[in-house]
Design a protein around this nucleic acid. Sequence first.
DNA 1: TAAAATTCCCAAAACGTTTTGGGAAATATC
DNA 2: GATATTTCCCAAAACGTTTTGGGAATTTTA
Lengths: 336, 336
Amino acid sequence: MPTTIHDVAKKLNLSITTVSRALDGYDDVADQTRQLVIETANKMGYAPNRAARQLRRQKTDTIGFILPSIAQRFDEPFFTEFISGLGEELSRKNFDLLVSNAPSAEGERNLYHRWVNSHKVDGFILNRVRRHDWRVNYLAQSGLPFVGLGKSHDGIDYPHVRIEGAEVYLRLVKHIREHRFSRFAFIGGPNDLIIQIERLRWFKSALQKCGLEVGQYNIVSTDMSSTGGYEAACTLLSGATTPDALLCVNDQTAYGVLHAAHEHGFSVGTDMAIAGFDGLRASYHTQPPLTTLGIPVSDVAHQLVLMLLSKINSQLPEAREIVIKPELRIRASTGG
Amino acid sequence: MPTTIHDVAKKLNLSITTVSRALDGYDDVADQTRQLVIETANKMGYAPNRAARQLRRQKTDTIGFILPSIAQRFDEPFFTEFISGLGEELSRKNFDLLVSNAPSAEGERNLYHRWVNSHKVDGFILNRVRRHDWRVNYLAQSGLPFVGLGKSHDGIDYPHVRIEGAEVYLRLVKHIREHRFSRFAFIGGPNDLIIQIERLRWFKSALQKCGLEVGQYNIVSTDMSSTGGYEAACTLLSGATTPDALLCVNDQTAYGVLHAAHEHGFSVGTDMAIAGFDGLRASYHTQPPLTTLGIPVSDVAHQLVLMLLSKINSQLPEAREIVIKPELRIRASTGG
DNA sequence: TAAAATTCCCAAAACGTTTTGGGAAATATC
DNA sequence: GATATTTCCCAAAACGTTTTGGGAATTTTA
């Protein structure tokens, strides 16, 4: 049986009110008393019962992250880094992180409903935002605070982090051109994903600025897994005229593409250029090391947490949008 | 304001007791009434307030997982798969998963204390168990249920999953020998980690059975990250007589080792054999694809959850130990 | 028909906090 | 010396459930 506030009060012959207020730092308790309370509370190993506090305060000091059901496979290091970043910042603020992964689209919906209705979290962090995202609409209507990595086109205003990669994408394409690669292809993800929409736009725009054509057939769609990338690249590289510069929507996809390229006998970096997006740590150790556009995943997670917490603690808008520019990391996979 | 049980009761002119019992499936409420209650509760979007229920029931329906502080970098796909497995099984049982990552050894200790004292979780799942593990001692003494992946040598009995890899390790070594590799080295992790102890033992025993010597200098210790593996391999491969068969304590380490091998001009699979352990999905897409001993990470996580829940719900011992044998997955990195 | 058993429901207590609205003692002000 | 102010503390209510211990109808049994 853990010690309760009653135990502490009894031992000191004080009321539970005083103990509570002493620990919470109210100024209507004598310094001497406060010292005593804090000491004995520590000595007795007292920690407030979370459920009782939540019930009384009507907040949970917990925020929720539900892994989107598109990422069924869940083998993406991106999420590990992201979740880790969330956890870091949250624990610094004495908040907890409740995670769950949705088994299906329907299951995902249920999870959100349950967590909202049963008051389980004070707010949500969204990831893999879609063009029209029911989560955004649902949460906005429910009134629960939330922030997102990416902004949906639903006309709803919410604090978010946005990646601005147009400029750096142009630099990437120019760099690849300098190494005499010219037949570009884009290995993308689901079409309604914000990151897909944006990254594909940057790709197209960069090619255009370099005076290159991009045929529709050179833009393929995957589920953004390594296997998805592998399969897409296999078909792409089996055609008569094959592309020689494969730009991927994320690093994960690029891993599969690398595999396929090797299997088809290409020498990546000389015969062919391959690049990713995200800058996962693992990308440094691929063979050859992968050129990629690095996003400071942990920082992004930190920022999202900070935005969410300030939204929770007050209604003040603070920063509505944080813009982050990726970093071009040139490695051997594009000729170095 | 979410709807409470009072709202439902008032709308139906029933007592909250009856509503509560109807929803909980007690048999002292008329079928007709129950139907009505369930219907209107659904229609009103009622979900029991978690905090209130927890407070009254004295359980949280939440289990905790704290990422060990050794894995600071947190970029290991192993954990993503593992956490995902935990989440899957838990949500199936209507439990939640609270995660946190410890910033330091001290921070880790504090987290456990806080979660235990404030009654935040009904149980813990341990990972990266050490030979002498304070977590095991602390939790056992606190009386909170817990299970672990691996068993510490503290003489404390707790339900756990154990990997039994001696036999399959021998098969791995034999396979590598058949491809004419003979100078073995082991790229391991911290010395007091159970997985390091076990895997190193299997390594040594397999070599012995094949009539091979293993010099002490051919066993190196890393932090089990890709970078750790990279650095260890770099020193190893800079020596006068270099090993030609590098067996790694896990896949993550092997990724770095692969990188180092390529950098030193070796052709992995012909000049040199490299193998991992864990069977991460990503290992299929390395160059060359990595030979590894596969562990069904999701299954392991499921089993751990089941053991923990049965421990929580009753004191019955059920299964005290589940033994799992890795699967030998031969790929090109050891000559195919 | 009376007693016993069953069916269906409910009022009140409890879980462990925080917050409200004072109130007694000590100190300061006139 | 009397009043006003400050200092320090506390009893009780509240948060939204679940559980306890009946109790009033209704049905069955004798």
